[in-house]
Design a protein around this nucleic acid. Structure first.
Length: 442
RNA sequence: GUGGUUGUAGUUCAGUUGGUUAGAACGUCGGAUUGUGAUUCCGAAGGUCGAGGGUUCGAGUCCCUUCAGCCACCCCA
C-alpha cells in the first residue's frame, strides 16, 4: 500500500509550538486591549450564504472568495474578512444588542490569492468595531485602540496613517469625477509606491479620465509633511467643496482627539493620498506600518463605513473599526527577530528518574500546579542524561531531580537549567512550602 | 489570475562539460565505569535527488508537465 504524501494546501500552514506560543500570546494581548476599551467578543460561522459575501468589497475580493455548493445545493462562501460577517450579524441581532455595540472578533479568514511573505490564503484577523454611532469619539477611539494594541505587543516604531474618504469623494465630486471614484482611488493608493507620473498614467488608463483631471486629483499629493502642514495646505486644494472641507475638519478633530488621549504625535501621519481598496469605507480610513519593515504592508487597517449594514437591513447602522493582521505581524516579527524562541508552556521539568518513585513525581507535580507553577513530568524512565537534554532543549527553567537518596532525605534537587547550577531544597508532599518558595522567587 | 525564480537526508547546503554503491555539517538516536543537560570522542539511523513523463547506452545534472516555496504585478492583513 502506498503512503499518502503529507502536505498542506498552497498558502495554508501548520503551526509548530515555537510559532504557536507567540501567536497565542499575541491573541491574548489583543483580547486584553480590546476588552480594556469595552469591546466584547463575538464569533460567527466560517461559512456564509454566498450572497452575504459577494459584492461587498470589490471585484477583486469576489474573485478571491473561496466558494462552493454544499451537499444541500446551497451556494456558500468562506468568509473573506470579519467585517462583512459583522454587518450581517449586526443587521440580524442589533435589536437584542442595542447601540452603540462594540465587539471584537479574532478568527481565521480565507482569500484565494497567491501567497507571498506575510500573505497567506488562511490567516487570522483581530477585528474590533463600534456599530451604531457616527460620533467622532468612536473614530478617535479607534486610533487610540490601534496605538495601545501595537504598543502592548511590544512595538515602538510604527506609524498610523490616517485619511478621510470624504475628502477624496468631495474632491472628486467637485471635479465631476464621482462616478469614477473606485478606479481613481485605487490608482491614487499606489502613489507612494510608483510615483506621481506613473500614478497619473495609471489614472488615465484605469479610470478613463484626462491627464489634466488626474493632475487635479494628484494635487493631494502635494499635501505632505507634518500634520500641521497638511492641514494648512488642504483648504487651498479642496476649494469650496463642502463635503471635502467637512471631511478635512473631521480629520483634524480625530487627529487632535487622538493626541489629546495620549497617542504620540510622531506616530500619526496625516496622509490624504491613502484610499484603501475596500469599497465600503466612507469616512476615516487608516493603515499601520512598521517603521522597521514597511515593505510587508499594513499590519492594521480599517476605517468608517456608514452604509455597510444597509445591504442587509433598512435600519441605519454606521460603524467604524479596524483589523490587526495577526499572521502578517508575526511574519514581520519573525524577520525582525523579535520572537522569543522559548517553546515550552511551563517552567518546571521533573525527570522520571527512579521507577520506584513514579507516584511521588506525579504528586510533586500536582502540588506545584496547585501552587500555580506549571510542571511537566517526563513520561519514560530513560537515562537522566537524555531527560536533561530534553529539558535543556525545550526551554524549561528548572529541573527537579529526586532519586532514592533525595526522597529519603526529604529533599529535591533544584537545577537551574540556564545557569547549570543546583541546590537541595527541603520538600515533602505535605510540606511543599520551601520548594514552592524557591521556585517562585527567581 | 499573470510573469520571474528556486526545489538534493529533520534543517542548511555540496554534488565538476550527464557516467559506476548521492556527500558534509547541524539535529536525532545509541555508546564512552552503575544517578546529572549546551563541550569532547566513537557509532547508527535517515534521501524513489518535490512529483510525473521524455531525450539518452546512461540523468540529481538536459527538455516538457505538474505541485510547492520565494519575488514582482494585482490586491491586501
Amino acid at each position: 500500500m502506498s503512503l499518502i504524501q503529507p502536505r498542506t494546501l498552497k498558502g495554508f500552514r501548520d503551526y509548530l509550538p515555537a510559532a504557536m506560543i507567540p501567536r497565542e500570546r499575541l491573541m491574548e494581548t489583543a483580547r486584553e486591549t480590546f476588552r480594556s476599551f469595552g469591546f466584547a467578543p463575538i464569533d460567527t460561522p466560517t461559512l456564509e450564504h454566498l450572497e452575504i459575501l459577494t459584492g461587498k468589497g470589490s471585484e477583486e475580493t469576489d474573485r478571491q472568495l473561496y466558494q462552493f455548493v454544499d451537499a444541500g445545493k446551497r451556494p456558500v462562501g468562506m468568509r473573506f474578512d470579519l467585517t462583512v460577517p459583522l454587518a450581517r450579524f449586526a443587521a440580524q441581532h442589533i435589536n437584542e444588542l442595542g447601540t452603540p455595540f462594540k465587539r471584537y472578533h479574532i478568527a481565521p479568514v480565507w482569500r484565494g490569492e497567491n501567497p507571498q511573505a506575510g500573505r497567506y490564503r488562511e490567516f487570522y484577523q483581530c477585528d474590533f468595531d463600534t456599530i451604531g454611532t457616527e460620533s467622532v469619539l468612536a473614530d478617535i477611539e479607534a486610533v487610540t485602540v490601534i496605538d495601545s494594541l501595537i504598543r502592548a505587543i511590544g512595538i515602538d516604531a510604527f506609524t498610523i496613517s490616517i485619511n478621510n474618504r470624504a475628502i477624496l469623494n468631495g474632491l472628486l465630486e467637485s471635479l465631476g469625477l464621482a462616478d469614477k471614484a473606485t478606479p481613481i482611488l485605487r490608482s491614487l493608493d499606489k502613489l507612494a509606491k510608483i510615483g506621481l507620473e506613473a500614478t497619473n498614467a495609471e489614472m488615465v488608463n484605469a479610470a478613463g479620465i484626462t491627464s489634466e483631471q488626474a493632475d487635479q486629483v494628484l494635487g493631494l499629493a502635494q499635501c505632505d509633511g507634518t500634520a500641521e502642514q497638511v492641514f494648512a495646505k488642504l483648504p487651498g486644494i479642496l476649494g469650496d467643496n463642502e463635503k471635502a472641507n467637512e471631511g478635512a475638519a473631521r480629520l483634524r478633530e480625530i487627529y487632535d482627539g487622538a493626541i489629546a488621549s495620549g497617542v504620540s504625535p510622531d506616530r500619526i501621519k496625516i496622509d490624504v493620498s491613502i484610499a484603501r481598496g475596500l469599497d465600503y469605507y466612507t469616512g476615516v480610513i487608516f493603515e499601520t506600518t512598521l517603521d522597521e519593515l514597511p515593505g510587508i504592508g499594513s499590519i492594521c487597517s480599517g476605517g468608517r463605513y456608514d452604509n455597510l449594514a444597509g445591504l442587509y437591513t433598512k435600519q441605519h447602522l454606521p460603524g467604524i473599526g479596524a483589523s490587526l493582521g495577526l499572521d502578517r505581524l508575526l511574519s514581520a516579527l519573525e524577520t525582525l527577530e523579535r520572537l522569543s524562541s522559548n517553546s515550552k508552556p511551563c517552567p518546571v521539568f521533573i525527570p522520571f528518574f527512579d521507577k520506584d518513585h513514579r507516584d511521588d513525581y506525579l504528586r510533586l507535580a500536582t502540588n506545584l500546579r496547585k501552587a500555580g507553577i506549571g510542571t511537566e513530568v517526563y513520561p519514560e524512565p530513560r537515562k537522566l542524561k537524555a531527560q536533561l537534554k530534553y529539558a535543556d532543549g525545550h526551554g524549561f527553567q528548572y529541573a527537579l531531580i529526586a532519586g532514592g537518596n533525595e526522597w529519603e532525605r526529604g529533599e529535591v534537587q533544584v537545577k537551574v537549567l540556564a545557569e547549570k547550577t543546583s541546590e537541595d531544597i527541603a520538600y515533602q508532599h505535605d510540606a511543599p512550602e520551601k520548594l514552592i518558595e524557591r521556585l517562585t522567587t527567581s
